[in-house]
Design a protein around this nucleic acid. Structure first.
Length: 255
DNA sequence: ATGGTTGCTTAGCAA
């Protein structure tokens, strides 16, 4: 069971890259973020042609998440269902092969102190509440997505330059820590303790060639599921070449 | 040095 997460930065602009990657990597499930398309316009045909079905929660221009799967998907929910009037499409959850899988796109936050940063912290708090109300640590659950959080300094190419900045601020790292404390495991980190391993590189100033990146895309799994993990990787090849996303896929393989 | 790159939508925002 090969499970991946990938912020594609527009599924329509990235479609040739995404389909080529599905053909070469052949994951069972991929959680996509920043699809940037309304559900009615999602390019389902390109995926069905490869044997995948897409379960989508999108919106025009911004955000948008999807679960792309080779196996049937059931029990789909979108948003947190917490009564908040939030209209941003950032969370979808479904069951695939007996595993509860979520694709999530945490707000970027823009800059510490900005209202968007407060929204990010609120959103993370709502995610925590969703988790406490809708799951227990003894089920097989994977929260996959672009967290827009580098959990610690090993996940940052220039920790001092990023100190207390958005994506690295102690308040968002604490929110990430609460997910871990609840009973989720950062499975990629379990397999790779060293620094310098990233999932996102800025398009600007040769970020990727210089490996000036951050590890902000994560698959957080309950212990019961994490115990089945065999390996984890970042597919840096998908960040190379013509018109890439600024993120690379992160992959975990389970028995 | 307050830049730089990309996508969506078409000049400005978000990342």
């Amino acid at each position: 069971m090969k499970l991946a997460t990938w912020n594609v930065n527009s599924v329509r602009a990235r479609l040739p890259r995404v389909t080529a990657w599905l053909e070469s990597a052949r994951p069972d499930v991929v959680c996509l973020q920043e699809t940037k398309v309304e559900d009615a316009d999602f390019p389902h045909e390109a995926f069905t042609a490869l044997g995948y079905t897409c379960t989508v929660f999108g919106q025009r221009t911004y955000n948008g998440v999807a679960i792309v799967s080779r196996q049937p998907v059931v029990d789909v929910t979108t948003g947190f269902g917490d009564g908040d009037a939030d209209a941003e499409a950032r969370f979808i959850c479904a069951t695939v092969a007996g595993i509860r899988v979520a694709s999530l796109y945490v707000p970027n936050g823009k800059v510490v102190g900005d209202p968007k940063f407060e929204y990010k912290l609120r959103w993370l708090s709502r995610l925590q509440t969703w988790l406490e109300r809708n799951a227990t640590p003894d089920v097989e659950l994977a929260l996959c997505g672009d967290y827009n959080i580098a959990p610690d300094d090993r996940d940052v190419y220039d920790p001092d330059g990023w100190r207390d900045q958005v994506l690295c601020h102690p308040s968002e790292r604490a929110a990430f820590g609460r997910l871990i404390d609840w009973g989720l495991q950062d499975v990629y980190r379990r397999f790779h303790q060293e620094g310098g391993l990233y999932s996102w590189w800025d398009y600007r100033q040769l970020g990727f060639p210089k490996n000036r990146g951050l590890r902000i895309d994560h698959l957080l799994c309950t212990r019961k599921l994490a115990d089945r993990a065999q390996r984890a990787s970042v597919d840096r090849e998908a960040r190379k070449g013509k018109e890439p996303s600024d993120h690379a896929p992160v992959i975990v393989e389970f028995v």
